[in-house]
């Protein structure tokens, strides 16, 4: 395959999902990161990352393995706090509020910023209880019928309800891989977050399940800000409006998806996209 044909196909894919009006206008930045450095002990994993994430759009992080995209993703909902020896410097703000501020309640943050993981990890509870978990612990449902409504709505939004509506009491672990991941997505949106982080959500799934999830992401971006880490450039091109390319802990280039894939500004981006490495 040569450079030109790859660019052409990705460009075609990108334009198919583009909604012209939303992408052309500069969207308000929901998440703003400035000069973020992350250290694991003495090793530096991210150097000086600055980026604006637009609201109600899908932003994808691409790059070869180990380049720090997952690490950066996990900074946004402070999941890196759970890792011993991990230190984050710099500023990340959501709607203007610094999320590393000492007064900020991390529990509240994680209700506003949801996460979907690489390997589907439903709790060993029933499907209903999986989705109800978030609303329960945050005290979001005042009555049983309220809770039921939230669960059903979330499952519907995750395109899962029809498939599981008559077995809500069965364990979540009994579903197929793709269904489990959709369950995790339903679980994440049950608390009505503003931002959803997805860390390679389809890498453990087969192509048909992957297609379903990508469809779902496209629907969700009407109401949520989505950041997705993916190692598949085709997926990034299909699904996202903005793309950021990471390499060796540095944010090399950010831009509109079709621009990155058809006309990258940086040579490293060009090399990655054309398959020279990664």
């Amino acid at each position: 395959m040569n450079d030109a044909s790859i660019s052409a196909s990705t460009a075609a894919a990108a334009s198919a999902t583009a909604i012209p009006s939303l992408v052309d206008r500069p969207a308000p930045a929901k998440v703003v990161a400035r000069d973020v450095n992350v250290f694991y002990g003495d090793k530096q994993a991210l150097k000086s990352v600055s980026i604006d994430i637009p609201e109600r759009a899908v932003t994808s992080f691409i790059g070869p393995s180990g380049c720090g995209k997952s690490t950066f993703l996990r900074c946004i909902n402070r999941m890196n706090d759970t890792i011993e020896g991990c230190r984050v410097a710099g500023s990340i703000t959501i709607d203007g509020a610094d999320i590393y501020d000492s007064g900020l309640d991390v529990v509240e943050l994680r209700a506003r910023v949801g996460m979907v993981f690489q390997k589907p990890n439903p709790f060993p509870k029933s499907i209903f209880e999986n989705v109800a978990y978030g609303p329960r612990i945050h005290g979001l449902a005042r009555s049983k019928s309220d809770l039921e409504e939230v669960v059903v709505t979330s499952l519907k939004k995750a395109s899962l309800f029809e498939e599981v509506k008559d077995r809500l009491a069965e364990p979540g672990t009994g579903l197929s891989g793709g269904q489990q991941q959709r369950l995790c997505i339903a679980r994440a949106i049950a608390v009505s977050p503003e931002v959803i982080l997805m860390d390679e959500p389809c890498s453990a799934l087969d192509p048909i399940a992957t297609a379903k999830i990508e469809e779902l992401i496209d629907e969700l971006r009407a109401n949520f800000t989505i950041i997705i880490v993916t190692h598949s450039m085709q997926q990034a091109a299909r699904v996202s409006q903005r793309t950021a390319f990471f390499h060796l802990g540095i944010l090399v280039e950010t831009g509109d998806t079709d621009q990155i894939f058809t006309n990258p500004k940086d040579k490293r981006t060009q090399d990655y996209i054309t398959g020279r490495f990664g």
């Binding site: 509240e108 506003r112 945050h138 939004k157 009505s192 629907e219 109401n223």
Partner: peptide
């Protein structure tokens, strides 16, 4: 495709009251 009303925002969850 499931039907999601694009205009309706999910119920706003008030986490700072």
């Amino acid at each position: 495709m499931t039907d999601i009303a694009v205009s309706a925002r999910p119920r706003a969850v008030d986490l700072s009251s």
